[in-house]
Computed example of a mutant assay.
Amino acid sequence: MDKGTVVRTVALGIAWLNALLVQYGLQPIPVLDEESIAYGLAFLASVWTWFRNNYITATGKKQKEELQKKNLTR
């Protein structure tokens, strides 16, 4: 597994653990307050979506060129 997979898996596990703790009325892991977590997740999701839906990297630019050659993009 690569580093990104491990980080995403750990983050998912912590999120589910917190959700289960809250569900059963127990004290969640005191990392940050809920508002900070919500803003952080919204920020990360928007940056990730922007990055993935635009041709920013060299690989992305090559992909766009290939799509344009095959008339699959505007």
Rank of each mutant, 00 (worst) to 15 (best):
M1N: 04
D2C: 04
D2M: 05
K3H: 05
K3E: 04
K3P: 02
G4L: 14
T5I: 13
V7G: 00
T9E: 08
T9P: 00
A11Y: 05
L12M: 12
W16H: 06
W16P: 01
W16F: 12
L17C: 10
N18Y: 03
A19H: 10
L20Y: 06
L21Y: 07
Q23R: 08
L26A: 07
Q27N: 14
Q27S: 12
P28I: 08
P28H: 03
I29H: 03
I29A: 06
V31L: 15
L32I: 14
E34D: 14
E35D: 10
S36P: 00
A38G: 02
L41F: 11
A42Y: 05
F43D: 14
L44V: 13
L44T: 09
A45H: 04
A45Y: 08
V47C: 09
V47I: 15
W48E: 15
T49K: 11
T49N: 10
W50Q: 05
W50A: 14
F51D: 12
F51Q: 10
R52D: 09
N53S: 15
N54R: 13
N54F: 13
N54V: 10
N54I: 12
Y55M: 02
T57W: 01
T57Y: 00
A58M: 11
A58P: 00
K62C: 03
Q63Y: 01
Q63S: 12
K64Y: 12
K64M: 14
K64L: 15
E66T: 07
K69W: 06
K70E: 05
N71P: 02
N71M: 09
L72G: 00
L72E: 13
T73Q: 09
R74F: 07
R74D: 05
